[in-house]
Protein backbone atom coordinates (compact mmCIF):
# COMPACT_ATOMS: atom_id res chain seq x y z
CA UNK A 1 0.00 0.00 0.00
CA UNK A 2 1.40 3.35 -1.03
CA UNK A 3 0.20 6.42 0.81
CA UNK A 4 0.44 9.61 -1.13
CA UNK A 5 -2.22 11.98 0.01
CA UNK A 6 -4.75 12.11 2.79
CA UNK A 7 -7.53 12.74 0.30
CA UNK A 8 -6.45 10.39 -2.43
CA UNK A 9 -4.93 7.47 -0.64
CA UNK A 10 -3.97 4.51 -2.74
CA UNK A 11 -5.51 1.52 -1.06
CA UNK A 12 -4.42 -2.07 -1.32
CA UNK A 13 -5.76 -3.62 -4.46
CA UNK A 14 -8.96 -5.55 -4.76
CA UNK A 15 -9.16 -4.66 -8.43
CA UNK A 16 -7.83 -6.67 -11.31
CA UNK A 17 -7.27 -6.08 -15.00
CA UNK A 18 -7.36 -8.87 -17.52
CA UNK A 19 -6.08 -8.54 -21.02
CA UNK A 20 -4.14 -10.49 -23.61
CA UNK A 21 -0.62 -10.10 -24.86
CA UNK A 22 -1.60 -8.83 -28.31
CA UNK A 23 -3.39 -5.80 -26.94
CA UNK A 24 -0.62 -5.03 -24.48
CA UNK A 25 1.99 -5.41 -27.22
CA UNK A 26 0.01 -2.99 -29.35
CA UNK A 27 -0.24 -0.36 -26.58
CA UNK A 28 3.46 -0.76 -25.79
CA UNK A 29 4.46 -0.36 -29.42
CA UNK A 30 2.39 2.84 -29.64
CA UNK A 31 4.07 4.18 -26.48
CA UNK A 32 7.50 3.34 -27.89
CA UNK A 33 6.66 4.84 -31.27
CA UNK A 34 5.50 8.12 -29.73
CA UNK A 35 8.58 8.41 -27.49
CA UNK A 36 9.84 11.04 -26.46
CA UNK A 37 6.25 12.26 -26.45
CA UNK A 38 3.32 10.88 -24.53
CA UNK A 39 0.90 8.60 -26.30
CA UNK A 40 -2.72 8.24 -25.24
CA UNK A 41 -5.77 6.23 -26.10
CA UNK A 42 -9.02 4.63 -25.06
CA UNK A 43 -9.42 1.17 -23.51
CA UNK A 44 -12.43 -0.82 -24.62
CA UNK A 45 -13.88 -3.88 -22.97
CA UNK A 46 -16.15 -4.95 -20.17
CA UNK A 47 -16.07 -4.46 -16.45
CA UNK A 48 -17.86 -5.50 -13.34
CA UNK A 49 -17.34 -4.18 -9.85
CA UNK A 50 -13.78 -5.35 -9.40
CA UNK A 51 -12.57 -6.72 -12.69
CA UNK A 52 -11.72 -4.86 -15.88
CA UNK A 53 -11.34 -6.88 -19.05
CA UNK A 54 -9.55 -5.02 -21.85
CA UNK A 55 -10.66 -6.34 -25.25
CA UNK A 56 -9.32 -3.60 -27.46
CA UNK A 57 -7.38 -0.35 -27.42
CA UNK A 58 -8.05 2.65 -29.60
CA UNK A 59 -5.20 5.11 -30.19
CA UNK A 60 -6.17 8.79 -30.06
CA UNK A 61 -4.33 11.94 -31.00
CA UNK A 62 -2.52 13.75 -28.17
CA UNK A 63 -4.19 17.16 -28.37
CA UNK A 64 -1.61 18.90 -26.17
CA UNK A 65 0.44 21.76 -27.60
CA UNK A 66 3.63 20.39 -29.14
CA UNK A 67 5.94 21.79 -26.46
CA UNK A 68 3.87 20.13 -23.75
CA UNK A 69 3.53 16.68 -25.35
CA UNK A 70 6.69 15.40 -23.65
CA UNK A 71 4.98 15.43 -20.28
CA UNK A 72 1.26 15.93 -20.94
CA UNK A 73 -1.57 14.37 -22.85
CA UNK A 74 -5.13 15.30 -23.71
CA UNK A 75 -7.77 13.09 -25.28
CA UNK A 76 -10.30 15.19 -27.14
CA UNK A 77 -13.87 14.88 -25.79
CA UNK A 78 -15.15 14.35 -29.32
CA UNK A 79 -12.77 11.39 -29.77
CA UNK A 80 -14.39 9.79 -26.74
CA UNK A 81 -17.85 10.58 -28.14
CA UNK A 82 -17.07 9.07 -31.55
CA UNK A 83 -15.62 5.94 -29.97
CA UNK A 84 -18.66 5.60 -27.75
CA UNK A 85 -21.04 5.97 -30.69
CA UNK A 86 -19.15 3.29 -32.58
CA UNK A 87 -19.58 0.92 -29.65
CA UNK A 88 -23.34 1.45 -29.41
CA UNK A 89 -25.14 -1.84 -29.75
CA UNK A 90 -22.07 -3.93 -28.98
CA UNK A 91 -21.35 -5.65 -25.71
CA UNK A 92 -18.30 -3.46 -25.20
CA UNK A 93 -17.87 -0.01 -23.70
CA UNK A 94 -15.15 2.42 -22.77
CA UNK A 95 -13.61 1.08 -19.58
CA UNK A 96 -10.66 3.43 -19.27
CA UNK A 97 -7.71 5.19 -20.87
CA UNK A 98 -4.01 4.64 -21.30
CA UNK A 99 -1.09 7.02 -21.66
CA UNK A 100 2.68 6.86 -21.45
CA UNK A 101 5.26 8.60 -19.28
CA UNK A 102 8.43 9.09 -21.34
CA UNK A 103 11.55 8.84 -19.15
CA UNK A 104 9.41 9.03 -16.01
CA UNK A 105 8.08 6.27 -13.76
CA UNK A 106 4.69 4.66 -14.32
CA UNK A 107 3.14 6.33 -11.30
CA UNK A 108 0.23 8.74 -11.26
CA UNK A 109 1.29 12.36 -11.36
CA UNK A 110 -0.71 15.08 -9.65
CA UNK A 111 -2.08 16.04 -13.08
CA UNK A 112 -3.17 12.43 -13.62
CA UNK A 113 -4.89 12.18 -10.27
CA UNK A 114 -6.71 15.48 -10.65
CA UNK A 115 -8.13 14.45 -14.00
CA UNK A 116 -9.16 10.89 -13.07
CA UNK A 117 -12.79 10.01 -13.68
CA UNK A 118 -14.26 7.75 -11.01
CA UNK A 119 -14.90 4.14 -11.95
CA UNK A 120 -12.57 4.08 -14.95
CA UNK A 121 -9.30 2.31 -15.48
CA UNK A 122 -6.09 4.27 -16.12
CA UNK A 123 -3.19 2.31 -17.57
CA UNK A 124 0.27 3.91 -17.46
CA UNK A 125 3.27 2.83 -19.49
CA UNK A 126 6.71 4.17 -18.58
CA UNK A 127 9.08 4.36 -21.52
CA UNK A 128 12.78 4.89 -21.04
CA UNK A 129 15.08 5.66 -23.97
CA UNK A 130 12.38 4.43 -26.33
CA UNK A 131 11.83 1.09 -24.56
CA UNK A 132 8.95 0.02 -22.33
CA UNK A 133 9.97 -0.17 -18.68
CA UNK A 134 6.91 -0.62 -16.56
CA UNK A 135 3.12 -0.85 -16.81
CA UNK A 136 0.70 -0.02 -14.03
CA UNK A 137 -3.06 0.41 -13.71
CA UNK A 138 -5.10 2.59 -11.36
CA UNK A 139 -8.79 3.07 -10.60
CA UNK A 140 -10.43 5.85 -8.69
CA UNK A 141 -13.45 4.92 -6.63
CA UNK A 142 -14.93 8.07 -5.12
CA UNK A 143 -11.93 9.88 -3.64
CA UNK A 144 -9.77 6.80 -3.23
CA UNK A 145 -7.27 5.65 -5.84
CA UNK A 146 -6.57 1.92 -6.06
CA UNK A 147 -3.73 0.25 -7.90
CA UNK A 148 -5.05 -2.72 -9.89
CA UNK A 149 -3.27 -6.00 -10.43
CA UNK A 150 -2.74 -6.77 -14.11
CA UNK A 151 -3.13 -10.23 -15.57
CA UNK A 152 -1.93 -10.64 -19.09
CA UNK A 153 -2.38 -13.95 -20.86
CA UNK A 154 -2.08 -15.31 -24.30
CA UNK A 155 -5.76 -16.01 -24.80
CA UNK A 156 -7.11 -17.75 -27.85
CA UNK A 157 -9.17 -15.41 -30.02
CA UNK A 158 -12.99 -15.65 -30.17
Amino acid sequence: MRKTHYQNEIASSVYSVETDEDIMARIISIAEKEYPYECCGILIGRCDDHCFEISDAYETCNHERSVKRADSFTIGPMDVYKCERALTGTEYEIIGFYHSHPDRPAVLSVKDETGMLPGLLYVLISVSAGMRKDITAYIRINEIIHEATMYCENRPKG
Partner: peptide
Protein backbone atom coordinates in the same frame (compact mmCIF):
# COMPACT_ATOMS: atom_id res chain seq x y z
CA UNK B 1 -26.14 18.82 -26.05
CA UNK B 2 -23.26 16.51 -25.19
CA UNK B 3 -21.86 15.98 -21.71
CA UNK B 4 -18.39 14.55 -22.32
CA UNK B 5 -15.24 13.79 -20.35
CA UNK B 6 -12.00 15.70 -20.82
CA UNK B 7 -9.24 13.20 -20.27
CA UNK B 8 -5.87 14.77 -19.53
CA UNK B 9 -2.80 14.18 -17.44
CA UNK B 10 0.83 13.50 -17.94
CA UNK B 11 4.13 12.45 -16.53
CA UNK B 12 5.36 13.82 -13.25
CA UNK B 13 7.70 16.79 -13.78
CA UNK B 14 11.41 16.25 -14.12
Amino acid sequence: VLLLPFIAGGAPGE
